[in-house]
Amino acid sequence: MFSLATLALFLGMCIVLARLYAGPTLYDRVLAGNAFGTYTVLFIGVLGFLTGRPDFLDIALLYALINFVGTIAVLKYFRYRAIGDTSPSPKGKPVLHGNLKDQGYKH
């Protein structure tokens, strides 16, 4: 029965990967990448049950953590074109809204 669940999750991962490949806009791809991470976490968990190795759950937990941070980092990069300190003023107030292109900067 766990093999059926593994197969279904694998199919779902393939479909989401197809959307990641085909997605016309950047945000489609980020969304598909995030969803792919969720699918992978559950897939690893089910695979651990299928093969009788519950140690896999540690890997799943780590994958969940990295997936969230990675999604936020990608979005931050595309909004500010930088990963590190993005505060525009020395006092550290974050820029209000809009990416750099909206504010008249050419890349």
């Binding site: 479909i15 197809a18 959307r19 969803a35 559950l42």
Partner: peptide
């Protein structure tokens, strides 16, 4: 999960 993937596609 499959329904979500199909909808995303």
């Amino acid at each position: 999960m499959l329904v979500g993937a199909i909808g995303a596609l």
